Amino acid sequence: MRIGELSNRTGVSHRLLRYYEEQGLLTADRTGGGFREYGPDTPTVVRQIRALLTAGLPTRVIRDILPCAHGPAPELESHPDMLAVLRHELGAVEARLECLAETRDILACYLAATEARGASEPVRSTNAGR
């Protein structure tokens, strides 16, 4: 199938499909006219890529674990190296969540202090945020 049909079947733009190919996530043969020709299983691979991206995995990681993916969900074969990569990525997400929680708490303190001070002071015009 050509890129247009693959795009229609998956809802993924031509540009994004070409990007996946550049990243080594998809492969395509070339016709005599230079058109990309994708295999019949490529829509499933695209769905796997989309699901793994939604899980927060970067394309460099997806490229490594995609051979272990089966089905559109996808289900991943258990392999020690892949499990280590997934654990590492999960740890990175958890670290970002902790950082975001700390940022949220600091912003909440600023907001509470500002609101408390604003309640006890007369209203004045400011140019804050401009």
Rank of each mutant, 00 (worst) to 15 (best):
L97E: 02
R2N: 15
P43T: 00
T114G: 14
R18E: 07
R87A: 11
R124Y: 09
T103C: 12
M1G: 09
I3P: 04
Y20I: 07
L53Y: 09
N8G: 12
I62G: 13
R9W: 04
L26I: 10
Y110I: 05
P67A: 00
T59E: 01
V61C: 09
G39F: 02
V93H: 14
V61T: 13
P72L: 00
G91V: 00
I49Y: 06
R36Y: 10
Y110Q: 08
G24R: 04
P58S: 12
Y19C: 12
Y19Q: 15
A92N: 09
S13C: 08
E89G: 02
S78V: 02
T42Y: 00
R104A: 02
L26H: 03
A55D: 05
Y38C: 06
Y19S: 14
D64V: 12
C68L: 15
G33V: 00
G4S: 13
I3Q: 08
R124V: 06
P122W: 01
T31D: 09
L97N: 02
N8H: 14
E121I: 00
P40N: 06
G91E: 07
S78K: 13
P72D: 03
M82C: 03
I49L: 06
R117E: 14
C99D: 15
E22W: 07
V61N: 03
D41M: 00
E89L: 00
C109H: 12
C68H: 15
I106S: 11
C68A: 06
L97G: 01
D105C: 07
A116P: 10
E5P: 11
T59C: 05
T54R: 15
G34R: 10
E89D: 03
A128P: 01
P74I: 05
P40H: 09
R47E: 01
R117M: 08
E115G: 00
V12G: 03
G118A: 15
P43N: 02
A101S: 08
R15M: 10
E121F: 00
G39Q: 10
A112V: 11
R117P: 11
D105H: 11
V12M: 08
E115D: 11
R18N: 05
P43H: 03
L17W: 13
V93T: 10
H79Q: 14
G34D: 10
E115Y: 04
S13Q: 11
R87H: 06
S13D: 08
R30N: 08
R117L: 13
L16C: 14
H14W: 11
L107V: 15
